[in-house]
Simulated assay, not measured.
Amino acid sequence: MAKSQGNFNKKESEKKKQQKQKEKQEKREERQANNKKGKSLEDMMAYIDEDGNITSTPPDPSKKKEVNLEDIQIGVARQTDDDEQDPIHTGVVTFFNESKGYGFIKDQKTQESIFVHVNGLLDRVKEHSKVTFEVEMGHKGPNAVRVKLVK
């Protein structure tokens, strides 16, 4: 008895290959049938309504709002000089580890927790001490410097 030339796996892979080619040809024909290259400019236009949604209908001119160019802000708002006028802040020491030499001060105005190192202290502080301090930006965030006890 002679062996057959093609085995089952070869036949299956050939069937899959032919099926893929057939599907690819059908997709190509469908794309060509639905080709929209001949559309007019009006058909391709998209509009944004007053709520910011994209629509195919043009906006109603009666709902048009006037906007001053000076009111449009691009980017981040300029920083006000409030921080520059009063560089001295007041706060309460919420945590201070004397053995490691660091702690945190809670600013009374902003309720922000600010890191303080023993090198930035002018007076000896403990937890719950009222202090005045200045803020400088360190490479990891704001640091309290020139920390004094409030008497």
Rank of each mutant, 00 (worst) to 15 (best):
V93R: 02
V125G: 09
E127F: 01
M44W: 01
P87C: 08
K24W: 02
Q108H: 12
K36D: 12
G52V: 11
E30Y: 09
R31F: 06
M45I: 09
F133E: 01
G101P: 11
I48N: 04
T132E: 12
R124P: 06
H117R: 11
K63Y: 03
Y102E: 04
T132M: 12
M44E: 13
A33H: 08
F95P: 01
I105R: 00
Y47D: 07
K27G: 02
S129E: 10
R124L: 11
E30D: 08
G75T: 06
F104R: 10
G52Q: 10
K22T: 07
E50Q: 11
N53V: 07
H89P: 02
Q21E: 13
P58T: 05
G52P: 11
V135E: 03
K63V: 02
V135K: 10
K106R: 15
V150P: 04
V92L: 13
I114D: 05
E136P: 01
P61Y: 07
T57H: 09
G103F: 05
D51Y: 12
T132Q: 14
T110A: 07
G103M: 07
T90C: 05
D83C: 00
D43S: 13
V135D: 05
P87V: 08
R146Y: 04
T94C: 05
E50T: 09
E70N: 13
V150I: 14
N119K: 15
L149H: 08
L122A: 12
T57I: 09
G52S: 10
S62E: 14
Q32C: 01
H89Q: 14
G138F: 04
S113K: 15
P61T: 09
H139F: 03
K24V: 03
D51G: 06
K126M: 08
L121P: 07
G52W: 10
K148V: 03
E84F: 08
K100H: 14
E42P: 00
K106I: 10
K27I: 06
V125I: 15
Q21N: 09
D71F: 04
L121T: 03
K15F: 13
K20R: 13
V76F: 08
G138N: 06
G138Y: 07
V116L: 05
L121F: 08
K15S: 11
V118F: 14
Q111I: 01
K39Y: 08
Q85M: 10
P59D: 08
K64T: 14
Y47W: 15
Q18T: 09
K151E: 15
K24L: 09
F95S: 14
K16C: 02
G91Q: 10
V125C: 06
I54T: 13
Q79N: 08
K151Y: 03
K64N: 09
K27T: 05
Q25G: 01
S129L: 01
A33T: 07
N119A: 15
S62H: 08
V125D: 02
N97M: 10
F95A: 13
E14M: 10
T57P: 00
E127K: 14
N119G: 13
Q21H: 03
K65M: 12
K22E: 11
Q19P: 00
K17I: 06
G141Y: 07
G75Q: 06
E112S: 12
Y47R: 07
G91I: 09
S99L: 14
Q111P: 00
H128C: 03
N68F: 06
H128V: 02
H128N: 14
G138C: 06
P58D: 03
